[in-house]
């Protein structure tokens, strides 16, 4: 299920409120610097308490509304996405070429839609999936343009002092994929009631 995590500095502003009492005793310049001083860029999760849930929901709804309006007016600009393909993840935009290694059935000239989208971003917002963005939201189309073999790779085995030495030369099949289009098609914050049953066979 997808959820929107807005870039809020609420945590930091609350911490500032808690500490401002202490800082009031210091000089005037230090008071002005409070916003700089109280910023912490740690990797630990910051503790927070929900004081007014309605206010929080209102704020997040506002942000979702802004994003939705950008999408309806098509003002989001260039989109990038992180896509999961054949066990690996790629960061893709429109018009770039990706090489998928290993056995991959789609043949040359086929147009494919990439469904496992972990993250979609524009210049002003990002939609982060947990772990994947919901099914109908993002539409990514790609074309297979080439299927070659990689350069010759060597697998060298040796057992020392036993006169055993083997070199295995091999080539991996590679598929070149051209990303044609990335677009956000669905409506934000409106996930389908039941998901995951599109491919179910009853």
């Amino acid at each position: 299920m997808a959820s929107l995590i807005p870039k809020l500095l609420n945590n930091f502003s609350r911490l500032a409120l808690q500490n401002s009492k202490k800082l009031n005793t210091r000089s005037a310049q230090v008071e002005k610097l409070s916003s700089i001083l109280t910023k912490c860029y740690g990797t630990q999760a910051t503790p927070y308490e929900i004081i007014d849930e309605e206010k929080d929901n209102k704020k997040s709804d506002e942000i979702i509304q802004k994003v939705q309006s950008q999408l309806t007016e098509s003002k989001e600009g260039r989109l990038f996405a992180i896509v999961h393909l054949a066990g690996k993840q790629f960061r893709i935009t429109e018009g770039d070429v990706v090489v998928v290694e290993g056995y991959w059935p789609p043949s040359c000239g086929e147009r494919i839609s990439l469904d496992k989208v972990l993250l979609v971003g524009a210049s002003d917002f990002t939609l982060i999936g947990r772990p994947v963005v919901q099914n109908g939201l993002v539409n990514i189309e790609a074309t297979v343009i080439e299927k070659t073999l990689s350069h010759t790779k060597t697998h060298f085995r040796k057992k020392r002092r036993k006169q055993y030495m083997r070199i295995h030369f091999y080539k991996i099949p590679q598929t070149h994929l051209r990303i044609n289009r990335i677009s956000i098609v669905g409506e934000l914050n409106n996930p389908p009631e039941v998901s995951g049953l599109e491919k179910a066979i009853f």
């Binding site: 990038f80 935009t93 018009g95 070429v97 524009a122």
Partner: peptide, 11 residues
Amino acid sequence: LIHTDFPSVQG
């Protein structure tokens, strides 16, 4: 294994 002409979208 990737080729992009636009490596940065958000700057």
